[in-house]
Amino acid sequence: MSLIKACARSINLVRRNPPLCNASLRPSPLGLSLHPTFRRTMASAMAKRLEGKTIVVTGASSGIGKSTAKEFARTSPKNLKLILTARRIDALKALAEEIKAEVGDGVKVLPYQLDVSKPEQINNFVPSLPEEFKEIDILVNNAGLVKGVAQAPDIKAEDMSIMFDTNVTGLINMTQAILPIFKKRSEGGRGDIINIGSIAGREPYAGGGIYCATKAAVRSFTESLRKELVASRIRIIEIDPGQVETEFSVVRFYGDKAKADAVYKGVEPLTGDDIAEIIVFAAGRRENVVIADTLVFPSHQASAGVMHRKS
């Protein structure tokens, strides 16, 4: 009889607590079904880890950078400082207004006009920051571009220069500008450097020789930096997206929207929001957890050159 009573009591408990039934479960970003209470707990834990941080995002005027700024703000809306850099200051100011409208005054946003391909601008970056923004905790090296699909010997010198100056030299100069802030902290240093690489840095393809070379350089620099800083609490993180639909292809084809749109015909590419979620997730882990290396594909992609397109 006691067993029957125990079973009946269990059934009544479930009835009195309907949120525990399967109908109330929601999919998590990792594909797991979690009770809403658990989701709130997880979100608040990540928000607390990010709370009070000062974050720099380069290339924040569009695409992955813009999505990343918004995702940080949404994740920790009570106490956060964002330094958003790009060449287009008007776009940054508009983004700052969008963030304020969505999350309120808990997130302070500093739009900062910066071309990372210009070393003199980077040299002036940290010294020119307002005092309240100088203690940077996270650097997201997102600024990057690709120009053309020319193959050797027809690659334009100016395209080579802008890709290397932005994707490689710019990323390294930004890292060197921010790293001293991290290194002066206790335990050998503390902070996050998140470099946005590409599948192109792992698997070169025809017509992308220079761009692929720049992203391979980013990968090598990132891995070297991680080894150099292994005795510190500075986390070095690389995220390598596959096909993402942003302004990337428009820039590659010199503003030709029709050619850019053809790149995504018959497929569902990743979005800037997809990559932003992964960036913020990596930054929001416990300090001892390093999401060191992440390759991200849309479901139709298996490598740089292997994609399934719907007819």
Rank of each mutant, 00 (worst) to 15 (best):
A213E: 03
V290R: 08
S2M: 14
T175L: 06
P29A: 11
F248R: 00
D256H: 06
A200Y: 07
A45T: 11
I99R: 05
V168K: 03
G201I: 05
T214A: 04
N12R: 13
T294G: 04
V168I: 13
N124K: 15
I155C: 11
P77T: 08
A143S: 12
E71Q: 07
P111M: 10
A283C: 12
G272C: 03
L32R: 10
S76H: 05
R74A: 04
V296K: 07
V280G: 01
G189R: 02
G284L: 01
R39Y: 00
G63C: 01
D137I: 08
L20N: 10
F221P: 01
L114P: 01
R74I: 01
K70V: 00
F248T: 01
L84N: 03
I181V: 11
R235T: 06
L92F: 06
I210P: 01
S311C: 04
I178P: 00
L229E: 03
L179G: 02
K257A: 09
K108S: 11
G266P: 07
N167H: 09
V306P: 00
P127T: 08
A177S: 15
R185N: 08
A6D: 12
F133G: 08
L110D: 03
R49Q: 06
K183L: 12
L129F: 09
I291E: 06
N167V: 06
I291T: 09
A216W: 05
L229C: 08
P130Q: 07
F72I: 04
D159K: 11
E238M: 11
S311A: 13
F182S: 02
E98L: 10
R16P: 00
N12P: 02
D192K: 06
T68G: 01
T271V: 03
L295E: 06
A86W: 04
M1W: 12
T37K: 11
A47C: 11
E245M: 13
A60C: 03
K93E: 15
